[in-house]
Amino acid sequence: MAGVRPRVRVPKEAAKGEVVEIKTLISHQMESGQRRDSKGEIIPRQIINTFTCTFNGDEVFSADWHGAISANPYMQFFMTAEESGTFEFTWKDDDGSVYTETAELTVN
């Protein structure tokens, strides 16, 4: 789907062992497959069905989303900061599209 824009908020720095909060938001209509158009036909489902967050390649958190997740899906979760590195966030769309975003974290 075109025009999908991921946004991520993570701290730039953290102390070793600190639990950091991660917030993500991605613009997407999340068409549930339950709605009908003006002709009474069901509008086919098109949602982001999977979200994954890795840090330096290791999975931190992932989620399966169903049609009941609101438009512009928001996800908040946590990670223990052990070493500096890169977060990679991946969203997978029903239509096969994959949206990605990265963020850096420096651990002091």
């Binding site: 950091v20 009941a68 609101s70 996800m75 946590f78």
Partner: peptide, 14 residues
């Protein structure tokens, strides 16, 4: 995962 630190998550639903 154990890396999550705390088992807490939030989202928004219909």
């Amino acid at each position: 995962t154990p890396r999550s630190g705390v088992a807490e998550a939030s989202t928004r639903m219909r």
